[in-house]
């Protein structure tokens, strides 16, 4: 039996620039029941606080709700592992929520072939921003990317859509099935993962009508 091994803070991420979560990886338990606690100090405040919520984001995590989240402030975060033989602390992680923003992927992806009168047909791709992000107030600005590929290739074709939530694709092979995904990122932050894939069959007559 021995004191616990050193835990490691894996990463911290904020989906909306209003809350954030940190995850850690436990070390060895020294052959004894081991408890974990996360403590933090915030820039401009001398006190040390404990994680406000160990549950919301699942095991080995700490969730900071709006009430506990400031941006443009450095948080010094430490995870402590304790068993009967002693306590071992992780290396501290210095985090400013400003720079750890990674949103959820876009939702409600829809695909539709459009046949405008006297003009080329096109594929209209539409989506919605992730649920929890407030874009109306300007606190959060989102940008999007689309990728699509036909069933006959492994290579994705990527398009940057800026802040739009729809995109038109004109050059497609008639008669082929296409797969489409979207992702998003804040004006300054990380890309989300690619969202749910949708597929559509492009009709054989997908060319300019006479």
């Amino acid at each position: 039996q021995s004191p616990p091994g050193k835990p490691e803070i894996l990463k911290c991420r904020s989906p909306d620039k209003e809350t954030f979560t940190c995850w850690w990886k436990p070390g060895t338990d020294g052959g004894l029941p081991t408890n974990y606690s996360l403590t933090y100090v915030r820039e401009g405040d001398e006190n040390t606080y404990e994680c406000p919520d160990y549950k919301t984001s699942g095991p080995n995590s700490c969730f900071f709700s709006k009430k506990y989240t400031s941006i443009w402030k450095i948080y010094i975060i430490t995870v402590n592992a304790t068993n009967q033989m002693g306590t071992t602390a992780s290396e501290p992680l210095y985090v400013d929520v400003t720079y750890i923003v990674e949103p959820e992927p876009p939702r409600n992806l829809s695909l539709e072939v459009k046949w405008p009168k006297d003009r080329k047909p096109y594929l209209l791709i539409r989506w919605s921003p992730p649920n929890i992000t407030d874009l109306r107030s300007g606190w959060f600005t989102m940008e999007y990317e689309i990728r699509l590929k036909s069933e006959e290739t492994d290579e994705w074709e990527i398009h940057f859509a800026g802040q739009q939530t729809q995109f038109k694709i004109f050059s497609l092979y008639p008669g082929q099935k296409y797969f489409v995904q979207t992702r998003c990122k804040p004006d300054h932050g990380y890309w989300s993962r690619w969202g749910q894939e949708s597929a559509i069959d492009i009709p054989n007559d997908f060319t300019m009508k006479d």
């Binding site: 401009g44 709006k66 400031s70 402030k73 501290p92 606190w139």
Partner: peptide
């Protein structure tokens, strides 16, 4: 980074630190 904490010359400005304050 540890030494940079509380080190900005503008930290005395009463700037909002979250969305509610900014609004």
């Amino acid at each position: 980074i540890a030494k940079a904490i509380n080190g900005c010359h503008t930290s005395s400005l009463p700037t909002p630190e979250d969305k509610e304050q900014a609004q």
